[in-house]
Design a protein around this nucleic acid. Structure first.
Lengths: 143, 143
DNA sequence: GTTACTTTGATATTCAATTTCACTGGAGGG
DNA sequence: CCCTCCAGTGAAATTGAATATCAAAGTAAC
């Protein structure tokens, strides 16, 4: 976690930006979160301890975090962008329960490999990808 | 195509709705389109021949088409929902060029199969899924 | 402390999606 | 064939998230 703070600090200074109190507060609060969260949610969290920090600052800081690779923007089609903490390089995808909204993360290297094959077939250079599976989680299926 | 009109007609009457001129016009124009198109684009197309048809009607009719399975909503994260004509059952996914915006469709049954395996592992019931690969198409890579 | 910046945060703007509501028009019963 | 009823229509308004604006405040170097 302090390693991530260091990454942020470096990125900030590389870009000729400034490490402000607000940005540090927002970063810490962001890293403390587990699941995927929206700008709105993070803003509300931050505001509890720091009522003076505005929505715009949270919004801009999340963009910064995405730029330096600490956060990843996810758009699950619910009309709201969610952010997640990135964990050193490994890509994962999601199972999304349309009943209760639960989001399960999974990794499958075989699928990644097949994607590379597809891309090759079309002479396409992959930069990123997203795989989302929608349906019902075990809890919602049984009830 | 007239088979698709029939599906629409049936759905409309099953739901106790009415088959209006506008809906027919919009359906026909929609089926005539090849690629993915937004509500806005379809609205502009429709308006050329039928200036009296409003945006809201196009919007609502596309929703209807999605409900009865003739259209599929696609959100490629560009801030706008695109619709595509569905072709009898087979699912396909997309390669999306972030340079020129080109969208290439592909099918890969092996990936679908692996998705089923993943879902099984988590006791998850798949309703739908989306796989999008972002990057550069061959044209944009070479230039 | 002063200067020359960037940052902040309240607010305004944008833009697509969606809703509203008074008016219009299908379609089944008569 | 007409009538009536309720759904449909379309112009306009509203929503809601994302993003931009800008005066005031903060930061770091001098």
């Amino acid at each position: 976690m302090s390693e991530k703070r260091e990454i942020f600090r470096k990125y900030i200074s590389q870009q000729g930006l400034k490490l402000t109190r607000q940005r540090q507060v927002i970063l810490d609060e962001f890293l403390r979160m587990e699941a995927h969260l929206s700008t709105e949610e993070l803003y509300l969290k931050v505001r509890k301890k720091h009522p003076h920090i505005g929505y715009a600052t949270v919004y801009r800081t999340l963009k910064l975090l995405a730029e330096c690779g600490l956060a990843k923007e996810r758009d699950f089609g619910a009309g709201q962008t969610l952010y997640e903490v990135t964990h050193r390089g490994q890509h994962h995808d999601h199972l999304i329960c349309t009943e209760c909204g639960e989001i399960i993360e999974f990794e499958d290297l075989r699928i990644e490999e097949l994607q590379k094959q597809v891309a090759k077939k079309y002479d396409f250079t992959i930069r990123d990808h997203r795989l989302e599976i929608y349906g019902r989680c075990s809890k919602c299926s049984s009830s």
